[in-house]
Simulated scan of single mutants.
Amino acid sequence: MRAKRLLATIASLTISVSSAMAADFNMRLHTLVKSPHPYNDMAEFMKKTLEEKSDGRIAVQIFDSGQLGQDPAVISELAFGTIDMMISTTSNAAEQVPEYGIFTMPYLFDGMEGITKKIGPGTPVEAHFEKIYEDRGLGIHLLALGASGARNLATKDKPVNDLADLAGMRMRTPPSPMDAETWSALGMLPVTIAWGELYAALQTGVAGAMESSLPGYSGAKLYEVAPNLALTQHTLQINHISISDVTWNKLPDDLKALVQETATEANELGVEKAIEYDANLVDSLAKDHGVKVTHPDTAAFKAKLEPIQAKLAEKLDLSAEYELLTAK
């Protein structure tokens, strides 16, 4: 039986390698997260669609779970063309694209339903960020913006029921000034920690709190070190699908159109999967992993933050993005 399984695995790998060798364009696709997660569902969709609809001219190899590195380093690799595409959160790209910081402003969107109509294909928002990529000379091309779930707060030592419970907690943030300013305004102490180092940081007490999407929290098993989940739903996790300019410029026009169309469809799938995961994960986290779930009054959070939003956007030089996203 073992021999048969081994032969089947070798055969599968041989077919995969042969397919890649036969392709005109071999693409390495990065995600930072472990499955189940919308980003990996999106990656699988892109691989399947691009390989089938290109008649084998494109082959895609997925590297999930940060196998190719953390996001800031991967973005740099995209510029050199050593990695071809990535699907990830915009907050982790804030070092190279500071304007992405606007998406971590809490309570900026009403909800997941219809989010792509606000930031998706053909919108002023997407066009704005496409131009920023070009103007900054990042060496990467923005394919699509989407959303992959609401972000919630989780803590190591005590549950959060109201704003007072946040005071003095060491809050993990990505390298995003918006995050740091926001959580500081709520009385917390921001600590910048890479996603791949977060489990250890919570385990050792370097951080006492974190926030993420539910699939991110579950997939990385962060409930083991931060078992108190507060459903603050403070932001929607906005994601980007980006491709190396080196790769993009090699593609003929028909394959460019296919890659663009596929990325747009992948983001629609990401929204659907995020809604599905969010609906199911809260119950399973509580039942299967003993997570203590609380429901803080988000009106109090909004009331605390709303008066400072415009000022915060101005302070961080994000007024143009804030006005674009809040325009009726």
Rank of each mutant, 00 (worst) to 15 (best):
V225G: 09
Y133F: 15
H234T: 09
A327F: 03
I15E: 11
T192H: 07
P307K: 09
L163F: 09
K256G: 15
D84A: 05
A207W: 02
P106M: 01
E276K: 03
A73I: 07
H30S: 15
R57C: 02
T247W: 05
K328D: 07
A263N: 11
I140K: 14
A164Y: 08
G205T: 03
L143D: 03
G101Y: 00
G101K: 00
A299L: 15
Y107K: 06
Q309C: 12
P190M: 00
V259K: 10
F109A: 00
A300C: 01
E126D: 00
S213I: 00
L255D: 11
S16I: 02
Q96W: 01
K34Q: 12
G56Y: 00
T192Y: 02
S284I: 14
I83K: 02
A207N: 04
S176R: 01
A73R: 11
I140P: 04
A11M: 09
M105I: 07
V271C: 14
L68P: 03
V293C: 12
E276H: 01
E181R: 10
E306I: 04
R172A: 15
K156P: 03
I238N: 05
P98K: 08
A310K: 14
L324G: 04
P38N: 05
V60C: 14
V60H: 12
R57Q: 09
I140H: 13
P175E: 12
T182S: 12
A194S: 12
L142S: 13
Q203T: 01
A299D: 15
M21E: 09
A279W: 06
E323I: 00
A167W: 03
K221T: 12
E181I: 03
I308Q: 13
G168A: 10
A3C: 07
Y277G: 05
M42P: 05
N228Y: 15
V291R: 11
Y107N: 03
P98V: 03
G137L: 06
S35R: 11
K131H: 08
M169V: 06
E224W: 06
P124G: 01
D41F: 06
G168L: 04
D64G: 06
